[in-house]
Computed example of a mutant assay.
Amino acid sequence: MLFVAVLIVIPLTWTIYLSLTDAEGSVRAESSFIGFKNYVDVLSDTDRFWPAVLRTVAFTGIALLFEVVLGMAIALLLWRPFRGQRWVRVAILMPLVATPVAVGMMWRLIFDPNIGMANQVLGWVGIGPQPWLAGRSTALPTTMFIDIWQWTPMVALILLAGLTSLSDEPQEAARIDGASAWQRFRHVTLPLMMPTVIVAILLRGIDALKTFDILYATKGRGGGSFHEVETLNVYAYGLSFDYNEYGVSSAVLIIFFLIIIGLMWALTARRKKEANR
């Protein structure tokens, strides 16, 4: 615990210190203490910071919604044994094998406007080519799709573990009372699964908030020429390694850290509430 605490405290303390200085060019260069000026500048930046916040919230919220819904559907599919279940599980879990950067590069080729397979498939059914990652309005939804494709299996695994731990007695009692499959899911399975669902939302939500590799692999610096997929992580990375503005980027990261801590606290409180019911 002491080792883990040191690994957390030292980088966090250093980042907080940099956020209160005008450090730029190099972290070893001389810098002056400027208090909360970086935070004021960041919070008043309506051109890059707040749009990045909105993209981060949209990316996380929409991707997480689809991942939980699809993950629950997959978990319910795999809950009861059926013929060929082993092969279905292998196929569903395959996206987790690859690294996010490799996944991003693969889908970047698939969605290429000129040679990509996606537009070729659309052409077979009479639909014209789409810009996908190249379009300002389609880039963010496309990266959401990539994230959903890769991480839905992880959510499904968590929910499947929760389903297999449930007792069969409530299901049998509801079935004897004449409840349909949907009624059993709505009034029996889902309430019993809520603590596990919240755990899945907590784990995947925090990870989705921090998504960087897929976005950078597909769109590069700044989240694209028009910052169309620039989230807070991509924005902070650009400030640090493209513009060497370490003080400002540290302030962005501390604000981002506080947002994540707040969401963790809210979801953990909700999980305790559900567990105590």
Rank of each mutant, 00 (worst) to 15 (best):
S137Q: 14
S180D: 04
F111R: 05
L163I: 07
G128N: 10
M117Q: 09
S165Y: 00
V197Q: 05
G205I: 10
P195Q: 08
A181S: 12
E169W: 08
Q120V: 07
L202H: 04
S180V: 06
V121W: 15
Q171F: 15
F185N: 06
L190A: 13
M193S: 09
G162Y: 03
Q183Y: 02
Q171W: 14
T138E: 03
L140W: 06
S167E: 12
T189Y: 09
L133V: 09
I201G: 06
P195T: 10
T143S: 05
V188Q: 02
W132G: 02
L109I: 13
T138V: 09
I176V: 15
W182D: 01
F145C: 04
A181L: 13
L157T: 08
M144C: 04
G162P: 05
I146L: 08
I198R: 02
I158S: 01
W151E: 01
R204T: 10
S180A: 05
L192H: 05
D168L: 15
I176R: 09
V121Q: 02
P195R: 03
I158Q: 00
A161S: 13
G126A: 09
A181Y: 03
W124F: 12
P153Y: 08
Q150P: 01
A161D: 04
T196Q: 10
R136L: 12
M117D: 00
N114K: 14
P131A: 12
M193V: 08
I115H: 11
D177L: 10
A156S: 13
G126H: 07
G162N: 07
P195M: 10
R184D: 01
L122R: 12
R108G: 15
P129C: 11
V125N: 05
I127H: 08
W124V: 12
I146H: 01
W132Q: 07
G123K: 06
V199I: 15
R175E: 15
T189W: 06
A118R: 03
I198F: 11
M154C: 06
W151Q: 04
G135P: 01
I176P: 00
A174K: 01
A156L: 08
D177Y: 01
V121R: 01
M144Y: 00
F145R: 00
V199S: 12
M117L: 15
A173V: 13
Q130T: 14
R108Y: 15
P153C: 09
I110D: 03
E169I: 11
A156T: 07
M193T: 04
D168M: 14
A181Q: 11
A118E: 04
R186D: 05
I115S: 15
I110F: 14
N114H: 14
P113V: 13
R175F: 11
I146P: 00
F145I: 14
M144T: 00
I148T: 00
A118G: 02
V188G: 01
G128E: 15
I201P: 07
M193A: 11
R184K: 10
P129V: 10
W124N: 03
F145M: 14
T189P: 04
I146V: 14
F185V: 10
W149M: 06
L133N: 06
